[in-house]
């Protein structure tokens, strides 16, 4: 425990790096996946091949994905972030499409009957109703990305993975455990927060 009391500033910095990387990844990934999901929900024929392609990326082991990107984007945060964004697209797009497809056609019909345009329907009816399923995808993606981001340390992108690698190379179990517990705690906390938002969205969608 002396490690923690003497090095809390380092641990704090690595925790911040980890949060920053995963936050950046998740925001970028959602910003890409939701529009893509909206488009795919519209063009049914393109859905299967597009999800198949994203599924292939999702199947590639993270370390191989990092390695394949190094020749293109070099070492560092850019490569780690790109790999993690690419990896989470499958979960996020799949759930966005499933959420939008799950909207009751009668509700869409009613919205059209009220004279809503396509955009209004999307913004005020379809996306709010699909939100619980989209958020479930964000939750799964978040937990996965938080764990996978520990590999970022291997390509000099920092984060709590640094403690795992230092623990390994310096034979320092306390460092490993510190890193593991903190990564796990972040994942549990984020999971909990997103679960609450998901429940809220579900109530809201049910009441609306």
């Amino acid at each position: 425990m002396t490690y923690l009391t003497e090095n809390w500033d380092v641990v704090l910095r690595l925790t911040w790096e980890h949060l920053y990387l995963t936050g950046l990844v998740l925001i970028t990934a959602v910003a890409l996946a939701v529009p893509l999901g909206v488009v795919l929900a519209h063009f049914r024929r393109a859905t299967t091949p597009a999800l198949g392609l994203l599924g292939v990326v999702y199947t590639i082991p993270s370390m191989a994905l990092f390695a394949l990107l190094i020749p293109v984007t070099g070492l560092g945060t850019k490569t780690a972030a790109t790999a993690l964004v690419a990896y989470s697209q499958y979960i996020l797009v799949r759930n966005t499409v499933a959420g939008l497809r799950g909207v009751d056609p009668a509700v869409e019909e009613a919205a059209r009957g009220m004279g809503m345009t396509g955009w209004q329907m999307l913004r005020e009816v379809r996306l709010p109703l699909a939100l619980p399923v989209i958020l479930a995808g964000v939750r799964v993606a978040a937990v996965t990305v938080i764990g996978m981001a520990s590999l970022a340390a291997w390509i000099n992108a920092g984060g709590l993975g640094v403690l795992l690698f230092q623990g390994l190379y310096q034979y320092h179990p306390v460092k490993m455990w510190t890193g593991t517990v903190l990564i796990g705690a972040i994942a549990l906390a984020v999971n909990r927060v997103l679960l609450i938002l998901e429940t809220k969205a579900r109530h809201w969608a049910g009441a609306g």
Binding site: S150, G167, M176, W177, G184, A187
Partner: peptide, 17 residues
């Protein structure tokens, strides 16, 4: 449920000591 949030990398390095 606990194991789910432990990264694969952590499982590998933690077994080593």
């Amino acid at each position: 449920g606990v194991l789910r949030v432990v990264p694969s990398l952590a499982v590998l390095v933690l077994v080593f000591p």
